[in-house]
């Protein structure tokens, strides 16, 4: 397993290089000159050229990319072109917010989604199953910003239970985590139901029942464990979705994570921030997928990592 893990970590390097190069390339060819935007509307050509030189924008794109990556390798993610903040310092402040929010969203979505998926499967074609199906469909198909605003109207404005914006106390995390995890909850619920229904019709489940096992044992010990592989895969994919979804959720709730930071940077074409955000998200998603793959072996002993 160690060998497999090391190989996967090494494989992440070309993936990250590919992603960052692509993002850098897109940023460079997209319209708009950051130098002109920084110096303002009244600047002369000389002012713009001076700023371009200062930012290194007058160099070939490959040189700019290599310089950025070399500095990033040494822990220097540069300084925001528009805000004069050190990107690394800013990230060390913002990233914990996004990670906390992401984990909270995943935790509630998994903790509720899988058990409710099991209930839906066990009681399929009943009122409970139909209700959960409708709820899942709403959560998975409604836009995240709309769901977020509905929560704000209901829980903040009407009930006055929870704050509508900010991140200074644990209460500020509840609504964003509910919004962010909504789609993941629905996917988990539906995935669990589908795979569990399929497993429950298997011969070995029929055998387990014939042996006189209790229904709870049959469902949770025999059927669910055999349905977990696709569900775990789904959780890994969900984490990537959560990281992407945080951009919208953080904006709606004025949450100070990297999602809201990234969206403003993309609008302003603030290359150091965009590059650092993509780099960090790529690493997090890569590590998450690795952990998910390693969990296969834990959940299903038939899975042997390392190619045997």
């Amino acid at each position: 397993m160690i060998k497999y893990t090391l190989r996967r970590i090494l494989l992440m390097i070309p993936v990250i290089i590919g992603i960052t190069f692509l993002v850098h390339f897109i940023l460079m060819i997209s319209p708009g000159d950051p130098a002109q935007m920084i110096v303002g509307p009244e600047a002369t050509l000389e002012d713009i050229e001076m700023k371009r030189h200062e930012l290194g924008l007058d160099q070939p794109q490959v040189v700019q990319y290599l310089k950025y990556m070399w500095n990033a390798l040494h822990g220097d993610f540069g300084t925001s072109w528009f805000q004069s903040f050190n990107v690394m310092t800013e990230f060390s402040h913002r990233l914990p917010y996004t990670l906390r929010l992401g984990f909270l969203a995943i935790i509630w979505a998994v903790a509720l989604g899988i058990p409710l998926g099991v209930i839906s499967a066990v009681r399929h074609n009943t009122i409970v199953d139909y209700a959960l199906t409708v709820l899942s469909l709403i959560l998975v198909s409604a836009p995240a910003f709309w769901i977020g605003m509905m929560y704000q109207v209901f829980f903040s404005l009407n009930l006055r239970w929870l704050p509508a914006s900010g991140a200074s106390t644990w209460r500020h995390y509840i609504l964003p985590a509910l919004s962010l995890g909504g789609g993941v909850f629905a996917t988990n619920c539906r995935t669990t139901r589908t795979w569990l229904l399929d497993t429950l019709r298997s011969d070995f489940v029929r055998t387990a029942r014939a042996k006189g096992n209790k229904e709870v044992t049959v469902v949770f010990k025999h059927a669910l464990r055999n349905s977990l592989l696709p569900i775990i895969t789904q959780i890994g994919v969900n984490f990537s979705i959560i990281m992407g979804g945080s951009v919208i959720t953080e904006t709606v709730y004025a949450f100070p994570g990297i999602g809201s930071y990234l969206i403003n940077a993309v609008k302003a074409k603030d290359v150091p921030i965009v590059m650092a955000s993509i780099l960090v998200v790529a690493v997090i998603v890569g590590i998450t997928n690795l952990v998910v793959d390693l969990m296969y072996a834990v959940v299903d002993p038939r899975v042997q990592l390392g190619g045997k």
Binding site: Q152, A164, S165
Partner: peptide, 11 residues
């Protein structure tokens, strides 16, 4: 900083 208009007014 709160960029979302609806969030501003609810708050």
């Amino acid at each position: 900083p709160i960029s979302n208009i609806a969030t501003q007014f609810i708050s």
